[in-house]
Design a protein around this nucleic acid. Sequence first.
DNA 1: AAGCAGGCTTCTGTATACACGAAGCCGCTT
DNA 2: AAGCGGCTTCGTGTATACAGAAGCCTGCTT
Lengths: 230, 230
Amino acid sequence: MASGFETEDDGDDRGLLSDRIRNALTDEIATGTMAAGAALDEQQLADRFGASRTPVREALRQLAAGGLVELRARRGGVVARMTPERIMEMFETVAEIEAVCVRLATYRMTPLERSHLIELHDLSQPIVEAGDFDAYDSFNRQFHEAIYHATHNGFLAEQAIAVRNRLNAFRRTQLRQGERLRRSRDEHEAIMQAIAEGDGEMASRRMRAHMLNAATSLSRFIETNKPGGV
Amino acid sequence: MASGFETEDDGDDRGLLSDRIRNALTDEIATGTMAAGAALDEQQLADRFGASRTPVREALRQLAAGGLVELRARRGGVVARMTPERIMEMFETVAEIEAVCVRLATYRMTPLERSHLIELHDLSQPIVEAGDFDAYDSFNRQFHEAIYHATHNGFLAEQAIAVRNRLNAFRRTQLRQGERLRRSRDEHEAIMQAIAEGDGEMASRRMRAHMLNAATSLSRFIETNKPGGV
DNA sequence: AAGCAGGCTTCTGTATACACGAAGCCGCTT
DNA sequence: AAGCGGCTTCGTGTATACAGAAGCCTGCTT
C-alpha cells in the first residue's frame, strides 16, 4: 500500500475490525452498492456491521484520506460524487504518471528487470487468445507494477499504485470489450519496443496514449449506462 | 488540501481537537522536534495535549495517511524514518509531477491565466533583490500552484499539492542560500519563456531541471548538518 | 551460565457514555 | 401569509472504560 497503514492485505476475515469495515465499504462504494452522494451515518453503519462507532469512524477517516468519501466537519460524510469530468481527470493523471514511470524505467531498469518484463509481456499472448478478462486484468496490474518498480524510485511507485487503486475503485465493471483486450496488448507491445530501443521518451508517449485509450474505452462504457446521479 | 478532510486551513485555535493535534504533530515532526523513529504513545500524547486518546488516534491516522508516521497494527506508531534516499525519491517525484503540470498548463492555460502567471513572476523580481526568503517562499508556492491550476485538471492539481506538502514537511530549514534565490528566479524565467513560446515539452524539461536543482541544493544542506542518523 | 517458558505489564483496539454543534420544525410576530 | 427566532432532535466529537494482544522481565530448568 501507499499509505502508512500496515496490515495483511485484503484478507477479509480476521484482523482489525476497522480494516474489515473499510474494505467492506470500499467494495460497496466501488461496486455502486452505495450510491455517490449517499449519507454515511456512523451509528447506522456500526449497527449494520455489528460493531461500535469507533472502528466505523476510523474506517471512514481512512476512506476520506483515500478520496472515496468526503467528510464535512460535524456534519458527517457522504460517498464522494464522481463526475465523469473528475474520472477523466483521474485517468489523465494516471496516464501522465505512468508515462513518467515508463520513461524513468526505460533508462534505469536492470537487464534482469527488462528480461522479467519481456517474460511477463510474452505471457499475455495466450491470455488474449483465450479472452480471459480476469487473467488479463491480473497480468496488466503486474505489468504496470513491474514498470513502477523498475523506476527504482519507491516513492513514485507508491504514488502510482495509490492513484491507480483510487481509480480502480470506480471502474466497477471493467472494460470487457474483446477488441480492447487485443489492442491493449498491441499497445504494450509498442511500449516494449520503445523500451528495448532505450527510447524513454517514445515509451512515455506510447504509455500515455495507451492509458488514454483505456480511459476513452471506459468513458464510452460509462456514457452508455449512466447510473442516476450527478 | 488534497485529502477529503474539510476544515478551515491551519487556523490553530478553535476547531476540531483532532485537527489541532494533527497540526501540532505535523509541525513537531517537520521541525524535527520529534525525531524520526520516535515512538508515538497515544496515552502519552493525549496527556501532553490535555486531551483523551480518541482525538490523538484520529490525528495519528491522518498523519499515517499523509505518510508522516507509520502505524504497525497493534504495535503503535513511529515517526516515519526519512532516509536521504527517500527524500531524493520524493524530490524526483515532485519534479516529474511538476514537469507534467507545466507541460499541460502550457497547452491549456487561458490568456488570462498566462497573464496572471506573468504578473506573478514579475512580482518576484523585487523580492529577490531584497533577499526576502519568506516572501520568496510564499511567492514560489503561488507560482507553482498557479501552474497546477492552469492544467485545468483539478485532480492532478490536488495530487501535486499533496505530494509537495508532504515533502515540505521535511525541509525544516529551507534552502536559505542567497545565490539559490536568484538562480531559482532565473529558472522560473526560462520556464516562462518556454510557456510564452507555447513549447510545453521545453517548459517541462526546464521545470524538471529547476526542481532537481532545488533538490540538490537541499540535499547539500542536509548532508552538511545531519541530525542523528538513520 | 544460558536458554526457554510463563506470567506480567503496557499499550492498542473496541465499546460505551456524555456533550456540544448543527439542522429541521414549530410557534410567534408583523 | 410570510419571515424570523427559539426549541427539539439528531449526529458528530470527545471522554472514559474494558478487553486482548505484543513485548518484556523474571524465574526455572538444563
